[in-house]
Amino acid sequence: MDSVDVMDVVARVRDTLEDVFAAVAEVRDRTAALAAVRDRDPEDLGTADLAALRPLLHDRLRRHRGLVSGIGFIAEPGLLCDVPAWLEWWQTTRDGDLRPLLLDLDPNTSAYSDYTHWDWFAIPRETGERACAGPYVDYLCSDEYSLTLSVPVHFNGRFLGVAAADVYLRHFEAAVLPLLRRLPGPAALVNARGRVAASTDARHLAGALLKGPRFGAARLRQCGEIPLALAEL
């Protein structure tokens, strides 16, 4: 297969995740608009305000059914007036129902779920750039191998939190494996550390770490601005 065809596969993989980033950007913009309503007294922003995001979140989960498993806004601790931390986060169940994610977000309890150290939150907060975290086991939301796509939310120069979406690896593989199978030989999509997000090589399944001489010898093609690369094995 010539390089034009390979790059077409790369472009289609990129577009698959760019569609998810577009939905996340809508959540970012809607959240910033909610903050703008409170511009005169931003300290009054609370969970009731974020509830206004729900129609958008529900619609995007339905629109991207089969790829996006969860979507929402994750607040910077201390942002809201009525809780110390908050996730306005909705997920699709295996039955296709929509449900909110409910976590213990009280820092004074032993079950406190501190989300600020996860890459999908820390990278946008620290760099101001979007992130594609994973593949990793998402112990916070689902216990599933996942990718989490996130973007920072700012208003008037203040970091409010991140808008994000989860993509289970099993859903991502279902979307991109038909593309990878068009290639003449085995191939995998990997992150910068060599962690496999999808693969047509039975020796390197999703979630595995591609390393050693085989990874060093692989030809890598970056998927645009998405931090995944196509490795021809």
Rank of each mutant, 00 (worst) to 15 (best):
A202L: 13
A202P: 11
A202V: 13
R203H: 12
R203C: 12
R203M: 13
R203S: 14
R203D: 14
R203N: 14
H204W: 12
H204M: 10
H204A: 12
H204Q: 11
H204N: 08
H204E: 09
H204R: 14
L205F: 14
L205E: 15
L205Q: 15
A206R: 09
A206V: 05
A206P: 09
G207E: 09
G207V: 12
G207N: 08
A208N: 11
A208Y: 11
A208L: 10
A208M: 14
L209I: 15
L209P: 07
L209C: 09
L209W: 13
L209S: 13
L210S: 09
K211E: 15
G212K: 03
G212M: 07
G212C: 06
G212A: 01
G212P: 04
G212F: 06
P213Y: 04
P213Q: 08
P213L: 07
P213F: 06
P213T: 07
P213W: 06
P213S: 06
R214Y: 12
R214Q: 12
R214W: 13
R214S: 13
R214C: 09
R214D: 11
F215Y: 11
F215A: 12
F215D: 05
F215R: 11
F215I: 03
A217H: 12
A217R: 14
A217P: 10
A217S: 15
A217T: 12
A218Y: 02
A218I: 08
A218R: 02
A218W: 04
A218T: 04
A218P: 07
A218M: 06
R219W: 10
R219M: 08
R219D: 07
R219G: 09
R219I: 10
R219Y: 08
L220P: 02
L220H: 06
L220F: 05
L220Q: 06
L220V: 04
R221N: 07
R221I: 13
R221F: 15
R221E: 11
R221Y: 12
Q222M: 05
Q222V: 09
Q222C: 04
Q222D: 09
Q222G: 02
Q222W: 05
C223P: 02
C223E: 02
C223H: 01
C223A: 05
G224Q: 07
G224H: 03
E225P: 00
E225A: 03
E225F: 00
E225I: 00
E225G: 00
E225R: 02
E225Q: 05
I226C: 01
I226L: 03
I226K: 00
I226G: 02
I226R: 02
I226Y: 02
I226W: 01
I226E: 01
P227L: 04
P227S: 07
P227Q: 10
L228K: 00
L228Q: 00
L228A: 00
L228F: 02
A229N: 02
A229Y: 00
A229C: 03
A229T: 03
A229V: 00
L230V: 06
L230T: 01
L230S: 04
A231D: 05
A231Q: 04
A231Y: 05
A231G: 07
